[in-house]
C-alpha cells in the first residue's frame, strides 16, 4: 500500500492529538469519570504506533489482519463509550430506571436490525473478499454507532433527562463523527477501494476525527459547573426523598399484592 505525505501528516497529527487528549484526561482527572473513553483514546495511540510499524515491516496480509483486529476492538470500545455516556445520562442516581432500560434495549435491537439490513444491501465493487469485509464492517459500525447516538438524544429529550456539559460534548463529537462516517463508508461501498475517490474520502474522515479530537481537548480542559446547593437544603431534600421512597414502597407492595390477587 502506497502512502502519500498527506497520509503520513494526518497519521502523525491524529497521533499527537490523541496523545494530548490522553494527557488532558489524566491531568484534569476526567479519566476516572470516563474510563472507557480514556481507554479508547489510549487504544488509538497503540493502534497508530502498531499500524505504522506493521505497515513498514510487515506483509500486506499481516496489515490486513492487524487492521481488522484493531477495527473490531475499536468498535467494541466505541460501543463501550456509548454505554458509558448512556449510563451518565440515563442513571443519574445509580440504578437504571425500568422505563429507560426497556426503551433503550428496544432501541438497541432496532439499531442492530437497521444496521444489519443496510450492510446486507451493500455490495462494494472490490476484487478482494478481504477488502469487502473491511468496507462492510466499517459501514456496519458507523451505522450502528450513529443510530445509538441519535437514539440517546431522542430518549433523553423524551424522558426529560438533561445533559451534563462533558457528556453532551463527548456525545456531540461522537454523533457528528458517526453520522459523517456513514457518508464516508457509503462512499467507500459505492466507489470501492480503488482510485483517488477512496483516498480523498479517507482524508476527509481522518480530518473530521482531528476536529473532534481538538473539540474534546478543549472541552475536557474546562470544568463543569460546581455544586452550590447548601448542605442544609441537601439534607432536607434527602430526608424528604427518603420518606417519599418509603411511602411509594408501601404503595408498590399493595400494588403487587393486588396484581397477584388478580392472577389468582
Amino acid at each position: 500500500m502506497h502512502l502519500t505525505r498527506l497520509d503520513f501528516f494526518l497519521w502523525a497529527f491524529t497521533f499527537v492529538e490523541d496523545f494530548v487528549l490522553l494527557a488532558v484526561l489524566w491531568r484534569f482527572k476526567r479519566a476516572a469519570r470516563f474510563p472507557v473513553f480514556t481507554g479508547l483514546i489510549a487504544f488509538d495511540i497503540v493502534q497508530t504506533i502498531a499500524g505504522y510499524l506493521i505497515q513498514h515491516f510487515g506483509s500486506s496480509l499481516t496489515y490486513f489482519y492487524a487492521y481488522w483486529s484493531f477495527g473490531l476492538l475499536d468498535v467494541v470500545l466505541q460501543l463501550g463509550v456509548a454505554y458509558e455516556l448512556c449510563a451518565c445520562v440515563f442513571r443519574p442516581l445509580g440504578p437504571w430506571a425500568p422505563d429507560v432500560k426497556r426503551s433503550f434495549a428496544f432501541l438497541i435491537a432496532i439499531s442492530l436490525f437497521v444496521a444489519s439490513v443496510l450492510t446486507w444491501l451493500a455490495s462494494p465493487p472490490t476484487r478482494y473478499v478481504r477488502s469487502a469485509i473491511v468496507i462492510r464492517g466499517d459501514f456496519f459500525a458507523s451505522a450502528l454507532m450513529s443510530e445509538l447516538f441519535v437514539a440517546m438524544i431522542v430518549l433523553s429529550v423524551t424522558m426529560g433527562l438533561p445533559w451534563r456539559t462533558h457528556v453532551a460534548q463527548l456525545t456531540q463529537g461522537f454523533g457528528a463523527y458517526s453520522i459523517f462516517g456513514i457518508i464516508v463508508d457509503a462512499a467507500h461501498t459505492y466507489f470501492g477501494t480503488v482510485g483517488p475517490a477512496y483516498a480523498r474520502i479517507s482524508h476527509i474522515r481522518i480530518s473530521l476525527y482531528c476536529v473532534c479530537l481538538a473539540y474534546w481537548i478543549l472541552a475536557m480542559i474546562q470544568d463543569e459547573p460546581e455544586p452550590r446547593m447548601p448542605d442544609s437544603l441537601r439534607a432536607e431534600l434527602l430526608a424528604l426523598q427518603k420518606r417519599i421512597a418509603m411511602v411509594l414502597r408501601g404503595f408498590r407492595e399493595l400494588r403487587e399484592g393486588q396484581c397477584s390477587n388478580f392472577l389468582l
Binding site: L93, P225, R234
Partner: peptide, 13 residues
Amino acid sequence: WYPEALEIAEELR
C-alpha cells in the same frame, strides 16, 4: 442555579 438538582428532577421523573 444548582446543577445537582438533577437528582431531584430524576426522583420526580
